[in-house]
Amino acid sequence: MTRLFTSSFSHLILFIGIFIMIVPVWLIFASSTHSSLSINTQGLQVYLGDRFVENYIRVLLYKGGFFKEITALKMFFNSFIMATGVAILSVVTSLMAAYALVYYRIKYATLLFWIIFITILVPLELRIFPTYSVMAKLNLVNSYFGLIVPISASAVATLFFRQFYKTVPDELLESAKLDGANTWRFFIDFLVPLSKTMIVAMLIFMFVFGYNQYLWPLLVTSQEQYWTVVMGLKMMSGSIVHRFAFVMMSMIPPILIIVILQRHFIKGVFQDK
């Protein structure tokens, strides 16, 4: 009896949570399928309207911004490039950094690791001006490279991979050595496949991290053709329903990534070994 009570009670709490999270999303979605006139006169809508296709297609192809140079479609493309770039670059660098920290005979490897680790305490916002000035000097403002590189060093991912490598038994390395594997082969043939699920999990984290960047793209892109979705939400002009439609669409890529990779993701985060 108590079990039934606790389980229905916890379900009740979960349902309330879901309700609180879903309702605003639903209101925006429902409203985005009406005309701006009905939103302006009657407020947010609970029921679906009849202008779904019209509104969404217009948003995707409408040239917005100050100079009317960029469409939402292009922003999605930019965001995709940026998020993918950040995800891949940060995972590759963290994998290699962790490899060097654990397996190379580096003096003060632990100290170096902690120095890398404390960069977590220095968020992008804090170093944004020096970073910008470096990018400007390198002539990388208004480029994909400039969007991606400065946020692609991840101390968290390095930490994850390092801790994982430390649990890999030494015999595996020794055995691989005797089997003729050199430094590079051990990395590619052993550590990378062994950390596969973790790599997938990190790719998802870093994709969403890159996708959600707001301040940095805003600063480093003055040309509208490099605008990304999250900053575009703010910069995009247009009527209220179109903005709603854009907001709805901006949620799709991260959701899609998680849905596609969730099996690996769950395995990666709760990996027992």
């Binding site: 038994p169 015999e171 595996l172 020794e174 055995s175 691989a176 005797l178 052993f190 496949p193 062994l194 596969k196």
Partner: peptide
Amino acid sequence: VAMVFQNYALYPH
């Protein structure tokens, strides 16, 4: 040279 280890050190993947 080839070596057999105490915990075998087989390649798990």
